[in-house]
């Protein structure tokens, strides 16, 4: 069992030294595999996710026989966790096929359908395979981020970045100050923080390009944990969109750096830092 330590510190810091709105370190690599059409690897703190994209290609199996794919393409997602991926120490029995993985696959599919222009791929199928190598909190959101990058690497046109971020509201009874920064929800929780009593909201949003309005369209939202009172929902939503905006900036920079390296001829060596 995870021991709940006193989350609140004197300076408003979390157990790993972050502030309420601070994200974990994000490291990205695109084009990891040569054989797949597109691939990306993301590390958000200790959460490591690998995503590959195959497609668009002819639909296989039973999905090919349905008539709905005549006007637009099909997105097929599979969410799989490595057997040794849990950071809580125990070993997972089956990598995929259990209820949680199937639910995540379906939600990932919804998220991807929102950003891919499916109407330019009639009668085709795009496969997105997620492999979670290490799981330390907000793995679903990290997989959405990695899937967006893999789609970019595969050259599939998308409407916007689909960015996932989690916000956790910790039900700490010793909270006296209502304006306490931690009391309004912390971003990008790791496994220990997710296990504490409270609510974790995972949100996938399509953030707006301009950094002035911290707003965007929310595509998928999922809550886990205890009950959430509706009065606290708006503030959580504002925080998570702020987080999505930040992650978008980081990923955008990484994508531009990768594409510049790839496309610039070797004669011109551009220092990007």
């Amino acid at each position: 069992m995870i021991e709940v330590e006193n989350i609140e510190d004197q300076n408003g810091l979390r157990p790993d030294g972050r502030r309420a709105l601070e994200l974990r370190q994000i490291r990205v690599k695109m084009g990891v595999f040569g054989q797949a059409d597109g691939s990306a690897y993301i590390e958000q703190g200790n959460t490591k996710i690998l995503v590959t994209v195959y497609g668009p290609h002819q639909p296989r199996g039973s999905t090919g026989r349905s008539t709905s794919n005549i006007t637009k393409g099909i997105v097929n997602c599979q969410y799989s966790m490595a057997v040794f991926s849990l950071s809580s120490g125990e070993r997972k029995r089956k990598p995929r096929g259990d209820r949680k993985s199937q639910e995540r696959s379906l939600q990932l599919k919804h998220a991807m359908e929102a950003i891919i222009h499916l109407e330019i791929y009639p009668r085709s199928q795009i496969d997105i395979y997620v492999e979670a190598l290490q799981v330390d909190g907000s793995e679903y959101c990290a997989s959405v981020n990695a899937a967006t990058l893999a789609l970019i690497d595969a050259g599939i046109p998308i409407k916007n970045y689909a960015i996932g971020c989690t916000v956790t509201l910790i039900n700490n009874p010793s909270l006296e100050d209502e304006d306490n920064a931690l009391g309004k929800g912390v971003l990008d929780a790791n496994y220990v923080e997710e296990c504490t009593p409270g609510v974790t909201l995972s949100v996938v949003a399509l953030p707006n390009n301009d950094s002035t309005s911290k707003d965007g369209l929310i595509v998928v939202a999922q809550g886990a944990g205890q009950r959430l009172h509706l009065s606290q929902f708006e503030s959580l939503k504002a925080r998570v969109l702020y987080g999505c905006q930040d992650i978008r900036t980081i990923l955008d920079y990484a994508v531009r750096e990768y594409l510049t390296e790839q496309s610039l001829p070797s004669l011109f060596h551009v220092a990007l830092n």
Binding site: F33, S39, L50, P95, E131
Partner: peptide
């Protein structure tokens, strides 16, 4: 020993 062929290798490895 447990071996898992991930679908990232080829779409034919999806599911079972």
């Amino acid at each position: 020993f447990f071996v898992d062929c991930s679908a990232t290798a080829t779409p034919a490895f999806e599911g079972k």
